[in-house]
Design a protein around this nucleic acid. Structure first.
Lengths: 249, 249
DNA sequence: CGCCCAGTTGAAGAATTTCAAACGATGTGG
DNA sequence: CCACATCGTTTGAAATTCTTCAACTGGGCG
């Protein structure tokens, strides 16, 4: 999708100092309310990683928890695996969103995270971040807000899985992604899904076949047009109506 | 279930100063790591409410968000209502747990909360709490941890709704409640469910009929015994095996 | 060119929902 | 004290939705 690397190995770590103010995501990312004076202390602990190709893990469940991550470009899925080896996708993370917040309560990572696409992240070592908080109330507030938002997102997902039919779930996910992309300055009606049908199905609690059929039905109703991962939302109003609830983000 | 009040009206507010150290839940509640010196500043902002009867709302979605709450006794459910008026139960909160964390990101409450039983709470005004954080790193850490735990809980629930059959969902909920009660010093194998079948079904993404049938099946398998809300877990091992994953809490 | 993977489509099967009825505990009024 | 209404729960049978199994398609890449 984006530029692909020749040599994955030397993409794994970057060491250039991050410059949040120049980042396109500054307005929506963690440091958005941090004063210019404090910003450099924050930037000092952040590790700007280079792009990593699709499919690479960012971390695995059980790894020692030491950092959270901000997505700079691309996309990431987080997922957990239960005793029988079943995966459950917990979330998709777009640029400007944090990954790994659920593991703060633990010494080890609770979820695994994998690149959906060529993706770059900023690594934020958590103990260092935590040490900054007492001195930086703005940052502390923002972190609390982002944690809270993560709860809201999970609960939104719950209300999807709890009572909605397949078509409504698919519509809701598409509307949600549409909103998030729009917020980042992209088209709200035409975009490429960063994740596979299998990930979508898993996220929505459906099989890939059901997802596929659902796309076909929505297409026949004239609500959207799909070609592989490329979707065009033709009737956002009715799509939202079908999703039938709380717009998120 | 517990003592019932004659006059609900004068139960709504208490003004006795809270004394966390003497509270049976001190070890598991928000202030557990706060130093004795800091504790009194925290206690000063907490409002100890008197018991409220079953069915009363604690807050409603859309209310101005101003406080989070710690359950002192009884139980609370939080839920959200979508555009069509469908409810989705987001969580059950037992003594020692916080309620309302999801709304921190918002000016208004995102969920509604209702007493499942005669319940008393400590109200913690959030702006005041937030003001204490810079001076009390321990408290800040604990709040962050609790927020993180809330994410883990929601994601646990997701993995239930995402891929589990009805019996597994019911078994998982029972094991989860069992664990939480045990942690609070109650019996892990014999307890009274604080919530109705309807709440259970809604929480698990099932109809009440399916929940009822599931209880009957689990009973026939000799895994438990149910009479109304009273359950006895007869074979916790196999119940966990059936639930088939990550123990939470 | 042909393999392979992701996605689509079809038909049969399984699980849950829906509709309907009955039960038991609780509470009210005669 | 009993008859009756109510609520939450249980049970049964039919309808629906989703899953499963299987075959097929089309684009990308060796």
């Amino acid at each position: 999708m984006s530029a692909v690397s020749r040599n994955p190995v030397d993409l794994l770590r970057g060491d250039k100092r991050v410059e949040c103010q120049n980042c396109a995501l500054f307005r929506i990312c963690l440091p958005k309310h941090v004063s210019a004076a404090d910003l450099s202390s924050l930037e000092a602990i952040i590790i700007k990683r280079k792009a990593t190709p699709r499919g690479q893990p960012l971390f695995k469940a059980g790894d020692k928890f030491s950092s959270i991550y901000a997505v700079r470009s691309g996309g990431i899925k987080t997922y957990r695996t239960d005793a029988e080896g079943n995966e459950q996708v917990c979330g998709f993370h777009l640029p400007g969103e944090l990954v790994g917040l659920e593991s703060i309560i633990s010494d080890t990572s609770i979820n695994s995270a994998k690149m959906l696409d060529t993706t770059s992240v900023c690594e934020i070592p958590f103990p260092e971040l935590e040490a900054l908080l007492p001195r930086m109330p703005q940052l502390q507030k923002e972190l609390t807000r982002l944690l809270s938002r993560e709860i809201v997102t999970s609960q939104w997902q719950l209300s999807l899985l709890g009572s909605k039919k397949a078509d409504a779930r698919v519509a809701a996910l598409l509307c949600n992604i549409s909103d998030r992309l729009e917020q980042r300055g992209y088209s709200a009606t035409r975009f490429s899904l960063p994740m596979s049908r299998s990930d979508i199905g898993n996220f929505l609690g459906l099989t890939i076949e059901t997802v596929s059929r659902s796309f076909t039905r929505l297409q026949r109703k004239g609500l959207l047009s799909v070609k592989g991962r490329m979707v065009t939302l033709l009737d956002l109003d009715n799509l939202r109506r079908l999703a039938g609830h709380t717009t998120l983000h």
